[in-house]
Design a binder for these strands. Structure first.
Lengths: 357, 357
DNA sequence: CTGAAAGCGCTAACAT
DNA sequence: ATGTTAGCGCTTTCAG
């Protein structure tokens, strides 16, 4: 009973059990056509030698790896890492494995090597979780990038014949600003993300449209751009106070920037929400514990990820089954508003302590 | 020139170029023994048909996948996701791929299926990035878990014959409390993480030891446990004020809990750092923008990850090369203290605005 | 019900 | 310098 140094393979099992490798294969795959006797014996041997089939070899022959590739950038930021977390759970749940590629820049356009690395490992599909920034989608026009491998995008402008799953950032912006108007604020400024980002543009457009529809003139001085970081938020809010002194509320494009906006406003001795209302975006767990607790637009990254993975698997199944290909479609999920203290000018009973999630 | 529906493989290239697959293989692997003429022609064909070798097939034959498995839990938390971010970068840089497995609970002990999933995909090594919690290391005594595959652990108690890379949490606790003493605080409370966590215990021990060495009696009422979340931090600090009213400083075991501690203290009308000093742990990017900006212990996750990946690759190389196996060792990296406003009682010039990173 | 042969895409070892 | 043979670990025909 030669015990190989590496690990037991199907041949070892076959020879120990005194059957052919084929029979072992049948047992492993729970095929019906094996005599109960034989099945039992083979199973015992498998147990005994600790045999586990090689998914690698299986993938090679079946041309199906049950592995999804995920491409992501900026894992050190909260947004991307939340997205990945959701994807990892959803993929795990679907019984797939996940091959992770992190790219160094959001606006990389040299995506060729990434595709190759993933394809050469025979992933069944690729989830492109890099946000749409600048020209980082231009490669999609290259018909070079083979479309044979199912592709699902997160967080980008929906378009024909491409599967995109994203929250509706435009609607999120609308929710935030509508709420501020309802609370009686009229001079509503905006701190945006970098406008190369699709998400930033959408959120800003929501702000602008709601104000315009309310008959409020929107000027450039009512707005400043940050780069998503708390540091940039502090600068932006200072700039805004300069440019737009009559401002009585701010819609900030993410919670990190809103955090420092709160700090700067506090420092100025202004009261939130009495003097200035603030609404953020993302609903990071800490936002309930900012000072005061932050009203914010909630996006459910888990749900987005789950939907994306489900779509992906549908596409894979249908393309493998030789069935009619799934109709590729864009899915826009709705965000919701979490109202906390930083914007509640009208209610008298406030949950100042935060805590509300 | 039959174009296969799937994608060009080595045979296609060989037949188009009129050579054997072997020659193609030689060209692809940049072997010297190919005639310049032939090499050129083969390269052209490769380009033309868009051939890329299958890493899967290569892995199968060479028993080397250039893929590392990473096992992690709680990706939705900042700590684990920062760790993964570092690992992903370091792995990418080393030219390896990353197979990600997220497990649902920190204290899972059924790690068998995880190992199998990873092994069956022939990963060259596994980075175990799940923090040590409760009994979740007990499987290490099981000799069942084959030790044939190189294993590197993050964030656990160093031990013999195991490679562990972690920051020195105990030292971190010491740094924090020593600093508070230097700033003249004497009644220093502690909000710990859940004590099932090794990290939490280490940080707490640092607190206790420094106080004891300074001749200060440490009682149980000077301490309360949280669960790392901001919500739990709020509860813990309330409890602490009840139990330990004379408290003049708090060392909080992570920044999220420190955030809500700051909030609760602010609400009570106490001044930070005058009445109460606060020091956190982790140095999350937002901590510079808390109110007031938070003094905290900085752990460099990127460095930890980089060291871990380097160790891993050393182990792999040495075990493959048939060389003497690398001596397995534990590596404890040193954290540092980032001093901001929440603890600076003595300095008169303060950078109240945060911003200092 | 079971086994033999062929082959997934590639490379190592031996020819020539 | 190039081709042939064998085989990584497994599954899919196709025969019995």
């Amino acid at each position: 009973m030669r015990q190989k140094t590496v690990r037991a393979n199907i041949k070892d099992v076959a020879s120990v059990a005194g059957v052919s490798t084929q029979t072992v294969s049948r047992v492993v795959n729970e095929r019906p056509d094996v005599a109960p006797e034989t099945r039992k014996r083979v199973k015992e041997v498998i147990e005994q030698v600790g045999y586990r089939p090689s998914e690698l070899a299986r993938s090679l022959i079946s041309q199906r790896s049950y592995t999804l590739g995920v491409v992501i950038a900026g894992l050190k930021y909260i947004g991307p890492s939340a997205a990945l977390s959701g994807i990892a759970s959803a993929v795990e749940e679907a019984g797939y494995s996940l091959l992770l590629k992190e790219i160094p820049h959001f606006d990389t356009n040299s995506i060729e090597p990434i595709f190759q690395a993933l394809r050469s490992r025979h992933v069944d599909g690729i989830i492109w979780a890099v946000s749409e920034v600048g020209e980082n989608r231009s490669w999609m026009k290259d018909s070079q990038i083979d479309s044979e491998i199912p592709l699902v995008f997160l967080t980008m402008e929906p378009q024909k014949n491409v599967t995109v799953v994203s929250i509706n950032n435009y609607l999120g912006g609308r929710l935030a600003v509508t709420h501020l108007l309802e609370q009686g604020y009229r001079q509503i400024g905006h701190i945006s993300g970098p406008l190369e980002w699709w998400e930033a543009r959408q959120r800003m457009k929501g702000w602008k449209d709601v104000l315009t529809e309310a008959g409020i003139l929107v000027e450039d001085r009512q707005w400043a751009a940050g780069n998503w970081s708390s540091a940039s938020g502090a600068l932006a809010v200072e700039k805004l106070f300069d440019q737009y002194p009559e401002m009585d509320a701010i819609f900030v494009a993410n919670d990190q920037m809103a955090l420092s906006a709160l700090q700067v406003i506090n420092q100025k001795g202004l009261k939130i929400p009495e003097d200035i209302g603030v609404v953020g975006f993302d609903n990071i767990p800490e936002s309930a514990f900012f000072w005061p607790s932050l009203t914010t637009v909630k996006q459910d990254q888990y749900h987005v990820a789950k939907v994306a993975v489900e779509e992906m698997i549908k596409i894979i199944e249908s393309s493998r089954g030789g069935l009619v290909p799934v109709q590729l479609k864009s899915i826009l999920l709705e965000p919701s508003l979490v109202v906390r203290c930083s914007s509640m000018r009208f209610e008298t009973i406030k949950n100042k302590g935060g805590g509300q999630l």
